[in-house]
């Protein structure tokens, strides 16, 4: 199971990478393995403001549609057009080309509520 140590994780299996005040969000390797075969990704509208825990995107496999939650509050500032065109990137490169959306966050302290790699690994094993 690939759980990069430079990322933060939510208990609902999103990952977050912070760069300045921009947080990139995707789903973990564990989550993509559980979902299998991602065939459709629905991304939020740019400019939308979300609270931590808000359903913000939808990732669909053949078997089910799964909500993806904002790990922290912020404003949606960028979407990944590549993953919309090729949803299987969520499976093949969950921490890279399979990212979903970027949030501008106003409170970096919010990340304190997220899991580090060790805690996330413990939560899924």
């Amino acid at each position: 199971m690939n759980v990069p140590t430079d990322l933060r994780y939510s208990s609902s299996h999103e990952w977050l990478r912070l760069d300045g005040d921009i947080a990139t969000v995707g789903i973990s390797d564990h989550a993509q393995e559980e979902l299998t075969d991602v065939v459709f990704v629905e991304l939020p509208a740019a400019g939308r403001r979300v609270d931590a825990g808000d359903p913000t995107a939808v990732v669909e496999s053949v078997k089910a549609a799964s909500d993806i939650y904002a790990p922290v509050a912020g404003e949606v500032v960028e979407l990944n057009p590549e993953v919309e065109a090729d949803p299987s990137l969520v499976n093949t490169d969950p921490y890279g080309k399979g990212w979903l959306f970027k949030l501008r966050i106003n409170n970096p302290d919010a990340l304190l509520g997220l899991l580090d790699a060790a805690a996330y690994t413990a939560s899924i094993s």
Partner: peptide, 12 residues
Amino acid sequence: PVQYTSILAEHH
């Protein structure tokens, strides 16, 4: 089960 490996792989 719903799937053994993946629905797409099993379908194909």
